[in-house]
Nucleic acid binder design. Structure first.
Lengths: 218, 218
DNA sequence: ATAATTTTTTAGACTAGCCTAAACTTATAT
DNA sequence: ATATAAGTTTAGGCTAGTCTAAAAAATTAT
């Protein structure tokens, strides 16, 4: 069984590696974990000894199949709890992250299965991120940043790339939510900002930065 | 802020001291925490420095007002989570303890207030134990062990003194639950066992030990 | 191609929480 | 009243996870 800290490192490595695809550097891990490189090296050795990551000195780490499965279970718990907090306890989507960071470490298979059932087996969390099922399977939906949409087609907001509280609060303020229908009215070449229509009734301008952080389907 | 371990020690001291009334010995704490006396002494010093307990060498500890308040918040969280697990996630009352032991340490005032509201401000947990409100107030109801009931009056089951899984499972099997109506049909002088009628429809025999562990109102 | 810079690892130290063994204090029994 | 037993504290050591500083490796720049 993994410790609280081991779970956090493994989850960070999983996210940094694009769900396990690529290798991750010590410095990247140190950055996202708010620790020093020396601490990361220590933990890397531990996780490597447990066969959760493959470690080659000075070249970074790659997550193993077993490590990916473990990481996915933590992600599953995190996202189920976020869903619970929003849907049942009326948290807003910008308030849930820190609490879910704690709840994701509760050890009880029964609890997670019952929570999943209680929430009626949700497939995405409040930020539009997919929730792995109990076998670790993820329902992948191809999404692109709003900034890369061209035409005048009907666009649906699917998720946020990075869900910082301030970005989420901003989205709420301008009326953007997961599932919202959007059309692009105008694109400013100069700075990449967009004028969009939300739900066929509200016009707003958003920056390129915001548009890059909003993932949509056309 | 208290650590996970500090919270656990403080809660144990609170329970062992009859809600703060009496002094608690090092050895008692070591026993319930499954640690050694030397470890307890270390922790006692920490909690004492934080003014959560009053410590006199070789004489044991007494919980302070501040310590009692902190302990009550942990108890509150534990019992709210147990209530959630039973009422919302369909856990049975013998399955909730270990999970609640973990959940009680989640740090978020907002979470607990929202959970309390979601559960509609319950006053007792699934084992009949009172849930402190957010200011730490407890609704005390005078209860006596079933073993001390005399007459033929109408008795209501209010709580279990010690809720071990096996005792709880036994109660479920014979049809006893919190709120059940009971009458005493016969008392065996020899061993203190009782023949009781549950909900005016089911006759069972229970041992003195079981009757001592069931708290009721007449 | 070598020097300078950056990144990573190692070495050694710190804290929280735990332990065992020994010393000390209090309680018990004669 | 004193010897023995029981309980508590101190001393010193362990592990997980963190750190800083120094050494080593890899990368970048000239």
């Amino acid at each position: 069984m993994l410790s609280y800290t081991e779970e956090n490192y493994l989850k960070a490595i999983y996210h940094l590696s694009d769900s396990g695809a690529k290798a991750v550097l010590t410095s990247e891990i140190a950055e996202t974990m708010n620790t020093k490189a020396a601490s990361v090296t220590d933990m890397i050795k531990k996780l490597s000894n447990k066969n959760l990551i493959a470690y080659e000195k000075y070249y970074g780490v790659k997550i193993t199949k077993q490590g990916r499965t473990e990481a996915l279970m933590v992600v599953r718990k995190h996202r189920l709890w976020e869903t619970f907090l929003v849907q049942k306890l009326q948290f807003s989507w910008d308030e849930v992250h820190d609490v879910a960071e704690q709840l994701e470490h509760i050890q009880s298979t029964l609890l997670i299965e019952k929570l999943d059932e209680f929430l009626e087996y949700p497939t995405v969390d409040p930020h539009g991120h997919p929730i792995p099922d109990k076998s670790g399977k993820i329902l992948e939906v191809r999404q692109i940043p709003l900034s890369e949409c061209s035409g005048r087609k009907k666009i649906i907001v699917r998720s946020v790339k990075h869900g910082s509280p301030s970005f989420l609060q901003y989205l709420s303020k301008i009326g953007v939510y997961i599932g919202a229908g959007i059309s692009i009215l105008d694109k400013v070449e100069f700075d990449g900002s967009l004028e969009i229509m939300i739900d066929a009734k509200k016009k707003v301008f958003i920056s390129r930065e915001a548009a890059q952080n909003l993932l949509v389907t056309e």
